[in-house]
Every structure is written in C-alpha cells, then in structure tokens.
Amino acid sequence: MKSVNTIVIFLITFGYEVIYNDAPVLWQTGFQDPATPVMEGIINLHHDFIFFFILIFVFVLWILLRAIYFFNSRVNKVAINYSHGTLIELIWTIIPIMILMTIAVPSFALLYSIDEIINPAVTVKAVGHQWYWSYEYSDYIGENGEIINFDSYIIPEEDLEIGQFRLLEVDNRIIVPVNTHVRVIVTSADVIHSWAVPSLGVKCDGIPGRLNQISLFIKREGVYYGQCSELCGVNHGFIPIVVEAVPLDNYIDWIQKKLYA
C-alpha cells in the first residue's frame, strides 16, 4: 500500500482530512483500506497477481481472436487432419508452471508471515453463538474476582442513528489498543461461525470444542467492521463484528471502567 500511503501523506500535508474506508460502500469492487501489515500484504499480493492475470488475459484473447479470424471454414476449405504437436504442448505446459511457481513465492512468504505469532500483550476471546458474538477479556481480574465478559448484538434497523451502518453496527464493540500485538482466540458455543474483519485482514473459523488463534497488529485508530463469514443458521447475516482500535491509555481506562463499573 505504498502508493496509498504516499497519497495520504500528500493530502494531509496540504490540509485535507483523510478518512479511511473501514466499512463496505455501495457498489464497492475493491478492498477496504488496510489497518494491519497483514492486510497490506494481502492487497499487495493481489495487485502483484493482477499483473500476471492481465498478461495472461491479453495473450489468451489475442490467440483466440487470431484463431477465429484466420482459421475458420470460410478461409480453410480443407480441414487439417493432425491433432497433436509435442513442441506446443511442452511450451503451454512449462510456461504456466513457471508462472505458478513465480506467484507461489510471494504467496507462501505472506502465508507464513500471517501465521507467525509474536508474543502478544493482550488476549481477546471471541465466542460465536446463534446468533451473536460474545467476548472475554480474561487477562484482567478485579479485586473481587470480576471478569470482563460481554455479548455483542446487532443494532436492529429501527434503532439505528444517523450515520450508523445497517447490518454492521453492534451494541457492544470490542476495544483493542493500537500498535500492540493482540491475540484473538476464536471459538464457538454451538455451530461453526467465522470471525472476519476485512480491514484487519483476518478471517478465522470459530469451531465448537476448538480454539483458533489469530494475531492482530493494528496500525491506526479506527472502527473496523466485519461479519460472521460461515453460514451458521437463519440469522447468519445478522451477527456483525465491530472492532474499535484506540490508544493504549484509552484501552487501559476502558478496561478499568469495565472491571469496576
């Protein structure tokens, strides 16, 4: 995302307000703006792949049009009676192999970097239910054994306020600190769900009886929207995910308030 960052810095320098796109927009065909190194990597990988896709698309289209134009029954009254050519088959086997191997290199590099777990400072547990998410912040225990544990339900359409997103807003957001390694443990209490936030570049199945781990490193403050991404029943489309990334001090304040409220 070098180019986007350059544009953003340019705009800020000249006094423009920059608003990142962390929720879907109408008729969107591209990505939401990245907020984690992982999502930056995914977008860059996509753009690198598109370079090869365009080359292949243009080449195949050219071959196809040439074949249609030059080799039709009008021009060639007598059909050619051979159907095999060793050289051309070698060429059209080996070149695709080379292309696939070339694009596999950055793909694996990204895959393994996503799996890399750096010692986290915060653990958040996300538990899928039919049909809401519940979150646990079990790193903190109050003096009388209080724990932070809450449910996150969708805000129904009739309760939305101006500026809120339909089908994406929840009553209790999860708060995480920016520039901090956060571990998210995803699981489920009933059927399979999937905890996904596009701007953060994460999508992780929540499976009953199993704990899946993903890591977040959010680079800027913001409110990030996501949805359950594994068909989990009739209200599958109505259990959104909202992650609010705040400075570390605000996070600690929030934890204090939650513990002793």
């Binding site: 750096i118 400072a121 915060v122 571990r183 899946n212 934890i255």
Partner: peptide, 20 residues
C-alpha cells in the same frame, strides 16, 4: 492494574489451533 501481559507464545503450540 498490572502492566499489560497475557499468556506468552508457547513453542509447543506454534499453530493456529490452540486447544491443547
């Protein structure tokens, strides 16, 4: 409140699956 800390990364469980 103690400084931010949580269960450390464990070499025995390097995968996504943290059930164990």
């Amino acid at each position: 409140m103690e400084s931010l800390s949580t269960a450390p990364r464990d070499e025995r469980f390097p995968h996504t699956n943290q059930t164990r």
